[in-house]
Design a protein around this nucleic acid. Structure first.
Lengths: 348, 348
DNA sequence: GGACGTATTGTGAGCGCTAACAATTCATGC
DNA sequence: GCATGAATTGTTAGCGCTCACAATACGTCC
């Protein structure tokens, strides 16, 4: 039965129909204990008959709560942000909150500020900002907003409460894994310099090498896209036979490009060059060969972010800057060892 | 400057500070023409000083408008839904609306109904449902909701206003392309039966073959995942040499699995078997080999959906069922022709 | 049977804003 | 100098709900 054009019934209408006061209707709706079963039944029947629904705005005005959270995100078609977004919404819903999203094409101080204004006018009680670019994060601490904000993926540096996967640890896992497999050196194709995650992965990679007394080889840069990985892969192919046997790529999409470039150059993976990625996108298991990579637990990121934000909103947590760190996990596949899991052997 | 714990200033506070009535403040905020410049300046100064922001709930209560739209989606980490979601939010924002999203793990009558209830309680003025599963769509027409709903990806059958990419046409483009390349028959790996898009793609494929007087070969089914494509690919490999030279796969992720299975079976693409996909995910260009596929214009889907929904909300469009259809586009790459574009030759 | 305490229901006052109308100011013309 | 109308500002009611409190009903005990 679709919506009707009539002005929707109000709580007073229901009360009249049920022969009670509007307050009793409110009590029934609010699951208040002190209502006689008989009365409750009468009210529920009237509600059902009239198709009554509580008016959101009136409720929000009276309670001073909208039970809505905001999320600012960018690059939401990429696996990482999309997964984070999904996890955030699910976690918020579990806590009884709705989520309003603003998806930005580019994350800058201006767009971020605009997004916060917009969400503010939308009455959100707090905001989670998925803000992996460093430039934007600084703005977050400065910007004036009438609600708490939790940052995700910013690293713990900025003066803002934040939740992060330990990117440095992830890079250590991947790099360490390659060293343990007998590679003398591990090269690195990094993400853009202004992404905190890219910086942290470089740091983890470098630290691991230095701890093993290996001088880090030349650093390559990409922009997360398969194309940039493809180009870097062509360059890397030129170093085969001159000490290049293992590459840690800062995300799976670039790793896909690298694999393709190596293959075209006649370089075999993993026999000639081992390749590890980062993210564990669903496709990684089906790359040629299946990709060793680092998995981030986005569900936990979502849950912890929402929990922290609600703590801030309720004033349970002092407004100081709390930092949550989440451990990533290494997933070993054939791109670093020829004898390892083939797809189909186990569920994805 | 972060948020303060003080009760935020009200319009009356600003009015007092500026020495005018609260209504004048409202006029300034509403860009009402009949306000003296001097008065406006006074008010704006007071607003700035006090860091005043209009209360969303009070405004919504008085105007009976929340300027918020709802979106119900599922599988939002997949490229298609994520792109649609992004396009919807962007289009809504351009029209001055905020978007509240509910992301479902599984789309069923129950979860859909729950999502609509939830959004209803969140005060949305209308909802876009990304509902590719047929089972859920039927519910949409039955479900009681106090706002208009536009369906996306449902096909035009259900009794609900909807916006769709012409999936059948997409399948015709891909299948026709393979026939035109000289293949006698074209096989098809389809998506799940309860997805309307899968059904429409099968229909387009079958119609194209029948128009060419070719009897459609055995139909294979997958679940959109690379793994299911891999398994189907293993089966397809068994038919090489027995008439199998071309496969149209219902999405790019499954196509990835097919490519991998064929490669492992020693079947070359495209020399032995040509493969075409559907979706044009960003990775497709970097598959081995780069994948011929069908691109859907999600930005247009988003814009048209929001436009239709707003028409319905404003009562500009009779509540009858309007249907919008959008044409997809064939993208030819090396998986169907060996001599075609290599990555890096041209941008994305 | 009446006092007392508790369960149940009702009443009134906002929440902070916009819309409609009323009141005031100001410029203009005769 | 005063009527006339337009521009500008103020006043009064709600919007539909929840909260705090008041009022009533009901049961129990002596």
């Amino acid at each position: 039965m679709p919506h009707s054009q009539l002005r929707p019934p109000t709580m007073a209408d229901v009360a009249r129909q049920a022969g009670v006061s509007h307050q009793t209707v409110s009590r029934v709706l609010g699951d208040h204990p002190n209502v006689r079963d008989e009365t409750r039944a009468k009210v529920l029947r009237a509600i059902e008959e009239m198709g009554y629904r509580r008016n959101f705005s009136a409720r929000a005005l009276a309670t001073r709560r909208t039970r809505t959270l905001g999320v600012v995100a960018s690059n939401t078609t990429l696996y990482g942000p999309a997964s984070t977004l999904f996890a955030l919404e699910e976690a918020a819903r579990a806590e009884g909150y709705l989520v309003s999203t603003v998806s930005l094409r580019r994350l800058t101080v201006e767009t971020l500020s605009e997004a916060l204004d917009r969400l503010s006018e939308g009455g959100v009680e707090g905001v989670v900002a998925i803000a992996p670019q460093r430039s934007a994060v600084e703005a977050l601490a400065e910007l004036r907003h009438p609600f708490p904000v939790v940052a995700v993926g910013t690293g713990s540096g900025a003066g803002v409460p934040s939740v992060n996967v330990d990117q440095s640890l992830g890079a250590r896992l991947a790099t360490g894994h390659l060293l343990a497999a007998g590679h003398r050196r591990v090269w690195h194709l990094a993400g853009p310099e202004d992404w905190q995650e890219a910086v942290d992965r470089v740091a983890g990679w470098r630290a691991t090498l230095e701890e093993a007394d290996v001088e880090p080889p030349m650093l390559l840069r990409g922009d997360w896209s398969p194309l940039s990985g493809y180009r870097a892969g062509q360059e890397l192919a030129g170093w085969v036979g001159r000490g290049l046997t293992a590459v840690f790529v800062a995300n799976d999409q670039m790793a896909l490009g690298v694999l393709r470039a190596l293959r075209e150059a006649g370089v075999r993976t993993p026999q000639d060059v081992a390749v590890a990625g980062f993210d564990d996108i669903p496709e990684s298991e089906f790359f040629a060969p299946p990709l060793t990579t680092v998995r981030q637990d986005f569900a936990t990121v979502g849950k912890r972010s929402i929990a922290l934000l609600l703590d801030l909103i309720e004033g349970r947590t002092p407004a100081g800057t709390s930092q949550v760190s989440i451990e990533p996990q290494l997933v070993v596949r054939a791109s670093t060892f020829p004898y390892l899991p083939q797809p189909g052997a186990a569920p994805g």
